[in-house]
């Protein structure tokens, strides 16, 4: 919650988001999640629990998947952030996005941006994961609709996509 007493401290934040540099003054207690959603209007990043438990707000920070509800905007000083809006290039979906469509991995869709970013990071570090490795890697991303199987199918397809 925001503080109601005392003067807020401000910080000049320089951050690259989806390849574009931004320079904004933010309060030091602003979450990266709110900075992305409210300042940059990148609303593809979702808030569900706000406590780092569900993975809905997953973004990539310097190539690592983070729950950005637990990251202060000031911590992103100088960082490269990638959100779901940064994946499709020139209207073409990336392999993970395409696989989620093809494999019927999406239902309500609220967990999907975080899921796709977390899966993308997994495939960066491990291009041919087993089903079990996919399940372990994505265990911090919760989905209430699908029962997960078709998401695992999608990540498998994306992994095999280059073959």
């Amino acid at each position: 919650m925001m503080r109601l007493s005392g003067e807020p401290a401000y910080f000049d934040l320089e951050v690259t988001v989806n390849g574009r540099p931004y320079r904004r003054t933010v309060t030091t207690h602003r979450r990266l999640l709110d900075f992305l959603r409210e300042e940059l209007l990148l609303t593809g990043t979702k808030e569900s629990c706000g406590e780092g438990e569900c993975g809905s707000c997953t973004v990539l920070m310097n190539g690592l998947a983070v729950n950005c509800c637990l990251v202060l905007a000031v911590e992103a000083q100088g960082a490269e952030i990638v959100t779901i809006e940064g994946l499709a290039q020139g209207g073409t979906l990336n392999a993970v996005q395409q696989a989620f469509m093809d494999c019927h991995a999406v239902q309500c869709g609220y967990c999907i941006p975080g899921m796709i970013l977390a899966a993308g990071q997994l495939l960066e570090s491990q291009p041919r994961p087993s089903r079990q490795e996919i399940e372990s890697a994505l265990v911090g991303n919760i989905c209430r609709c699908t029962g997960y199987h078709k998401i695992v199918d999608a990540v498998e397809q994306a992994a095999g996509g280059g073959a």
Binding site: I84, E85, Q98, M101, G109, P113
Partner: peptide, 15 residues
């Protein structure tokens, strides 16, 4: 395939 899938995988669906 879901007819509303594209917005959901690109983060553009307006919840």
């Amino acid at each position: 395939k879901r007819v509303d899938g594209l917005g959901k995988v690109t983060g553009r669906t307006p919840y």
